[in-house]
Nucleic acid binder design. Structure first.
Lengths: 244, 244
DNA sequence: GAGTGGTCTAGACCACTGT
DNA sequence: CAGTGGTCTAGACCACTCT
């Protein structure tokens, strides 16, 4: 047996969640029901479900059952974002401003990095997050419309695309690239810092099943932000962003 | 039952590994032996051992048994370092140079961050890693001698303290803090860059059981290095550092 | 009270691999 | 070939909590 039974069960349930067939709040069949469906022992189901719970896909409550959770923001690694929550956690007033919005074909910049075909259409958004009156983070985002067609109708003047996606689209793979860069002219202008000032850049690609959903670049002024991640090899890691 | 049996077994074995009682290469008793020792079913042992294997503490081989692994470098999050390996992976010649070495009491800088008592003694090392002839990373490290007394005799002129610690001391908790900073005068000098140039700073604290073992600050020139971490909520994450 | 998940048992068969 | 881990079974009891 190449792929084990509990792996297949886990994968089945994961795909039902990723596809939206089992949306957030959905009550998953009980272990006994699933054991009958799969014609296996309850322990086998339990193993799969326990892993799904550890991964943050579902919540399990005695007597009540197992429920699909909202897509999780934290990468289990760098608990970044939603930025609004992050700012609120610092006790600051959150401000959001849409700077640019374009809809276009992917034949420009991000096609390679988004793994898109020529015909793919995407949305390109630039926006700014503020903590109090101070610029906190510049967000430049591409959204793959093939993966999230609803994104075209979304209104990003009031809600940031990050928060919107978090509500709408579950993910199963993410990739972070973290670097230090000198602020370019436009970035410096938006963030209210000097050109060339050190900034922390976090670029994240997010997948749902096989499709890249979105590519985002978050630029933080280097003197105001750091990423903290605390963890152990065994248990689940705790992590929290922090302001210097 | 507050703490479950397989949790206690896992914790028992983890502590034997962290304390050095079961050193790297040690063959752990078989599941059947452990089941007899703990007077429990083999499945209960298996659950604990499977988690230890996933956490990277041990390796399990059929017929051969389970063996304690070398302390693992990767944080399961940001697979940073040993830097020598990192440079080698880029196809560059690795160079190492010790810049400073001090032994002193902790009443200076890092006592607070190392969670040390007044009487604690520590080692303070500064060194430089090179890729080819180009400075790659500046390492500034404090080592808690209460936790690793052997560190006093270690020779850091040829081997970096990071590589030495990785060989000698297992860890069970780590905390990364990542930020972007402008290079100070000394840093700029060592890295051969301009003062104020953006750098990626990774600060890592590492614990063994309850003791902070070491605090290290790694400073990379921002235009030459980025951190990449790729992962999924379920499986183990793959991650690799990358040169731009 | 009843149904859920959490844990544990005492078996079993298999795949693999070192001797 | 023998012993290991990997998986699975068909039960069991318990804690919890929703109704």
């Amino acid at each position: 047996m190449r792929v084990t039974l509990h792996q297949r069960i886990l994968s089945d349930v994961e795909h039902r969640i990723l596809s939206g067939a089992w949306p957030p709040g959905y009550r998953i069949p009980s272990e006994n029901e699933l054991a009958q469906q799969y014609q296996c022992a309850r322990m086998t189901i339990n193993k799969a479900m326990t892993q799904l719970a550890k991964a943050g896909y579902i919540e399990r409550r005695r007597r009540a059952g197992s429920f699909v959770l909202q897509p999780h923001a934290q990468s289990a690694v760098l608990e970044i974002h939603d930025i609004k929550t992050e700012v609120a956690a610092l006790g600051q007033a959150y401000g959001y401003e849409l700077i640019e919005w374009h809809r276009r074909r992917g034949d420009v910049i991000g096609r390679g990095r988004l793994e898109l075909s020529d015909s793919a259409e995407l949305i390109d958004v630039t926006c700014l997050h503020r903590a109090g009156s101070v610029p906190f983070c510049l967000e430049e985002r591409l959204i793959n419309l093939d993966a999230v067609s609803e994104a075209e109708q979304a209104d990003f003047t009031r809600e940031s695309p990050g928060a919107w996606l978090l509500r709408k689209v579950p993910w199963n793979v993410a990739e972070h690239t973290i670097s230090a860069v000198g602020a370019g002219a436009a970035t410096a202008h938006h963030l209210g810092i000097h050109e060339g000032a050190p900034c922390l850049a976090v670029e994240r690609r997010t997948w749902n099943a096989d499709h890249v959903v979105t590519l985002v670049r978050l630029t933080y002024p280097g003197d105001r932000h750091e990423l903290v991640a605390r963890f152990s090899p065994t248990g689940r890691q705790t992590s929290s962003p922090r302001l210097t």
